[in-house]
Design a protein around this nucleic acid. Structure first.
Lengths: 236, 236
DNA sequence: GCCATTCTTGACCGTTCGGTCAGACTTCTT
DNA sequence: AAGAAGTCTGACCGAACGGTCAAGAATGGC
């Protein structure tokens, strides 16, 4: 949640923004773990170390706080598909997209869970976003993928459903991390689990689209996954 | 929710079982749409057409009702991997598994949502199931897949993560149907959307594992999806 | 230094929550 | 027929909920 306006450091507006960000960051975790209905204002207050009335002073109602949180999450969401452009190499572009989504699953799992919870329960607060900007984005990027297919640069596949599959596979490492952790017998997912997941998803998508792994595009902080140990055999 | 004990039709025990099933069926929908905390006993009572006190008579507490619902869902869950056996053809086995999971996403979306919601919020009531029967199942089936890999019958892949990917892709058509519907501009998902999703997932998994589609194994009720219209080009 | 604005907070309010219970009603057994 | 066992439900309860408010504390402009 970066502040883009340059308020004087220590000033009133700056302190206000700081408080807002602090509350939103706390709310992201609490709402992710308990859901909208499951989280109480008292719990949010305790978690952020502020009196309940103070939260109401800043956001008015619980729903307004929740909506503000969703907005801050959506800002991030739409920017991940940047690598998917007509002139890009399909394998490189898809790999960069998948790595970016996997990085978010690791770095901002709570944001992913809040989003998942909202969609799961009918997306009451997200309907216009889903049917608006997100739908437009998918249409646009689907046209790019279809262009690659028509040019014979990759296997035919239904582009929107390819995106649904990629979203599902990558976000599962945030949303269902408890399940994955239990199956892998870990208290919480390790970086190597994310790396193995990334490798698996990349293999399914790239080979599934008739593509061979290319020299990957550089992705911020993605270095770790790229130098994962060679795939071990006989696991589980 | 089939009853396995043969109570005399119309008898007291039979009527009791009927009431329990009716309440559980209603609760599956209500809990799916609102979550555990979001659903109230009053709402559950109204939805099932019974007085609130009657629900408490049958299940005692809200949590007991919820736990009973989860149990009835888990009964179903573990049986889907039957097709994955060492002597089976990898392509046929994986295809049958994926089709079975997709059928559940279409026929019992509420069950999937209840399960997803529970895992999303920490799986408090499912920990022992996840770390017990489910983990055992994944270990067992992963050994089968690794056997296929060692025998050169399919590409190398991390078997547990392959299962995570399949779960994610198939269940997304139930759990996130609102998002998919919004992007595809539909009030709700159509059979042809599920068919297109099935085709996409099959392509990613089979080609991703270095397999070519084989003559599919018969799957209960799967006929519709198998005769889906030929894939259209240029969508979205 | 002073006043206006902004911030902070404990105490409080009406509503809804999960859960209880007495007693009426129905169904089985003998 | 009659008692036992099981079923049903309106009325009620204490606790927790989201939200309000008045009054004190802190801050900024002049």
């Amino acid at each position: 949640m970066p502040q883009d306006t340059a308020d004087p450091v220590g000033g009133r507006a700056w302190q206000r923004r700081k408080r807002l960000d602090h509350i939103l960051a706390t709310a992201e975790r609490v709402f992710a773990e308990a859901g909208f209905e499951g989280a109480s204002m008292a719990e949010l207050a305790a978690a952020s170390g502020l009196p309940k009335a103070n939260l109401h002073y800043y956001f008015g109602t619980k729903e307004a706080l929740y909506t503000a949180l969703l907005d801050s999450i959506l800002d991030l969401w739409l920017s991940a598909t940047d690598s998917i452009r007509p002139e890009a190499d399909p394998a490189q572009a898809l790999e960069a997209y998948i790595r970016t989504k996997m990085l978010w699953s690791r770095s901002r799992p709570f944001a992913s869970k809040v989003f998942a919870n909202e969609v799961l329960h009918g997306a009451t607060h997200l309907r216009s976003y889903l049917a608006g900007p997100l739908r437009t984005l998918v249409q646009e990027k689907s046209r790019v993928v279809q262009g690659w297919i028509d040019a014979g640069r990759m296997q035919a596949i239904d582009p929107p459903h390819l995106f649904f599959a990629i979203w599902a596979m990558t976000q599962t490492y945030a949303d269902f991390s408890v399940q994955i952790g239990a199956v892998l017998n870990r208290p919480e997912l390790l970086p190597e689990d994310h790396a193995a997941g990334t490798d698996t998803i990349l293999q399914l998508v790239l080979r599934g689209c008739g593509l061979e792994p290319q020299e990957p595009l550089p992705v911020a902080e993605a270095g770790r996954a790229a130098v994962a140990p060679p795939r071990r055999r006989r696991r589980g």
